[in-house]
């Protein structure tokens, strides 16, 4: 049989080569980001994996809805809680969401070995890590911004000053972006190193909530002892105290920070440290997945 007659048989056997479009790296990265974002909410995964994220999302939104209802019915012309302060009040829910969903994006592929299948494809390991981080950050941002939007709508319905409200909500969204980035970096790094899911979840919650608890205690003591500076330095050590410090000190939002950063250098330091947490986390993630590629 000659090669020619044999290749004639190939098509009869039904294998069709693919001659269509092959997308550039940017489009592939976008597809990874979208899938990751959907997965963070349990979409495209099993039915019960949607349960936790959507329950948390609902619980997180509930106080905002109640507040708006109260506002409308009692004709309040001012929100009982600041936009930026809302995340401070619901940081428990936010932490559980971040801790539970980060392993889905950062541990799963390492635990099941499927990372190899990604790395054997066009995307570079750094792009993979960056897209995973983006998925988690945007998922957290959705979690943080929906209540802000509900509160804003409520405030606008109650005929509060539109410009004031928009400005304050805008600052709150900016602070939320920073918080989402920090939480994604912290929980992402923890998840990428602790591939056992349970451990990653527990470690993330411990670092976020207990970490902040301890910092808050130190800040409270420092405040009582009238040595605010100590409290301000301590605030640099946890994402939530950084968030509160930046929201209260830098963005002048109504949020209760025990010892907000005072003075431009300290405020600049808060912003710098927050950015360092974000970028440092991304750097570590990139390094982690690059190492996975060489294994």
């Amino acid at each position: 049989m000659t090669p020619e007659s044999r290749s004639g048989v190939i098509h009869d056997l039904g294998y069709r080569p693919y001659a269509g479009i092959r997308q550039a790296e940017g489009r592939i990265a976008l597809a990874l980001f979208v899938t990751g974002l959907r997965n963070a909410f349990g979409l495209g995964r099993s039915g019960k994996s949607k349960l936790l994220p959507f329950i948390l999302l609902g619980l997180n939104l509930l106080p905002a809805l109640i507040l708006v209802a109260v506002m409308v019915f009692t004709n309040l012309d001012e929100l009982p809680i600041g936009y930026a302060a809302y995340a401070g009040q619901t940081q428990m829910l936010l932490s559980v969401f971040a801790a539970a969903q980060a392993p889905i994006l950062f541990s799963r592929d390492l635990r099941h070995g499927s990372i190899v299948l990604y790395l054997a494809r066009p995307l570079r390991s750094a792009t993979y890590a960056l897209m995973r981080w983006c998925s988690l950050t945007v998922a957290l941002l959705i979690f943080l911004v929906t209540p802000i939007v509900v509160l804003l709508l409520g405030a606008l319905l109650s005929e509060a000053d539109v410009v004031d409200q928009l400005t304050e909500a805008g600052w709150a969204v900016l602070a939320a972006v920073l918080l989402a980035g920090m939480l994604a970096s912290v929980t992402g790094v923890i998840s990428a190193w602790s591939t056992r899911r349970g451990f990653g979840v527990v470690a993330s919650i411990a670092v976020l909530l207990f970490g902040y608890g301890m910092i808050a205690a130190v800040q409270a003591i420092a405040y009582d002892e009238a040595s605010d500076r100590v409290g301000e330095y301590a605030g640099l050590l946890a994402p939530y105290s950084l968030y509160r410090g930046i929201a209260a000190g830098v963005l002048d939002s109504s949020i209760d920070a025990i010892t907000p950063p005072s003075g431009a250098p300290m405020q600049a330091l808060y912003v710098a440290v927050a950015l360092l947490v974000v970028l440092g986390g991304i750097g570590l993630l990139v390094w982690r997945y690059r190492r996975a590629a060489a294994r």
Binding site: G20, R22, A24, I28, L117, R121, P122
Partner: peptide
């Protein structure tokens, strides 16, 4: 399907 997209194929393909 997801991995095919990761290789650059559009979703329908």
């Amino acid at each position: 399907v997801h991995l095919a997209q990761m290789s650059g194929l559009p979703r329908t393909a």
